[in-house]
Simulated assay, not measured.
Amino acid sequence: MRYDWSPLWRSTIGFDRLFDAFDEVQRTTEDNYPHYNIERLDENRFQISVALAGFSPDQIALTAEQNVLTLEGRKPEKDSERVYLFRGISTRPFKRQFTLADHVEVKSARFEDGLLVIDLVRQVPEAMKPRQIAINGAQPRQPERIEAKAA
């Protein structure tokens, strides 16, 4: 039996080392709206880009609570000013959640070329970072002096 880890892998930020082995995992047919990318910029910085064509910043809510980042969007129900012959740009309401690893924080969010770009940073507290411990012990011995006698 083969397990599909992709829903967990694709919406989890900061756990990337844990899921490196699942890089080739088959994608599921879950609701994938809106489309997004998760990018690791370096060891402690990540970026989520979400395609939100047709949405404005006031129609989007971004909430970080504990280790969950929630993105919600809702357009007004009726757009009475426009008559569409074809409507291919989806503007349906959505809710997308991302699980964040410990100490991963949202630093900023901005709209850029039709994308909502969310910057994340892993900031491990100093008390939790590895540190070098000095080992105390006996004082180093002084070399013994050997006195030679003249022959």
Rank of each mutant, 00 (worst) to 15 (best):
R2H: 15
R2E: 14
R2A: 14
Y3D: 14
S6E: 13
P7G: 01
P7Y: 05
P7C: 03
P7L: 05
L8H: 07
W9N: 13
W9R: 14
R10A: 12
R10N: 15
S11G: 09
T12S: 15
I13C: 04
I13L: 06
I13G: 00
F15T: 06
L18C: 09
F19V: 05
F19D: 01
D20P: 07
A21P: 08
A21H: 11
E24L: 11
E24C: 09
V25Q: 14
Q26Y: 12
R27M: 13
R27T: 14
T28I: 07
Y33M: 02
P34T: 04
H35W: 15
Y36L: 05
N37P: 05
I38E: 07
R40Y: 03
L41Y: 04
Q47F: 05
S49G: 09
V50E: 03
A51K: 12
A51W: 15
A51S: 14
L52D: 00
G54T: 02
G54K: 02
F55L: 01
S56T: 15
P57Y: 03
D58W: 04
Q59G: 02
T63F: 04
A64I: 06
A64F: 05
E65T: 11
N67T: 06
N67Y: 07
L69H: 01
L71M: 01
R74P: 02
R74F: 09
R74G: 05
P76H: 00
K78R: 13
D79V: 11
D79H: 09
S80D: 14
E81T: 13
E81N: 13
V83F: 15
V83P: 07
R87A: 11
R87L: 08
G88W: 12
G88P: 08
G88N: 13
I89D: 07
S90Q: 09
S90K: 09
T91M: 09
P93V: 00
R96S: 05
F98D: 04
T99L: 13
H103C: 04
V104H: 00
V104A: 04
V104C: 02
V104T: 02
V106H: 01
V106I: 07
V106L: 08
V106Y: 01
S108Q: 02
F111S: 00
E112A: 06
G114I: 02
L115S: 06
L116R: 00
I118K: 01
D119G: 06
R122E: 07
Q123T: 15
E126F: 11
E126N: 11
A127H: 08
M128Q: 14
K129P: 03
Q132P: 08
N136S: 15
N136I: 14
G137H: 04
G137N: 02
Q139H: 11
P140Q: 08
P143Y: 00
E144W: 08
E144A: 08
I146W: 09
E147K: 10
K149S: 10
A150C: 09
A151N: 12
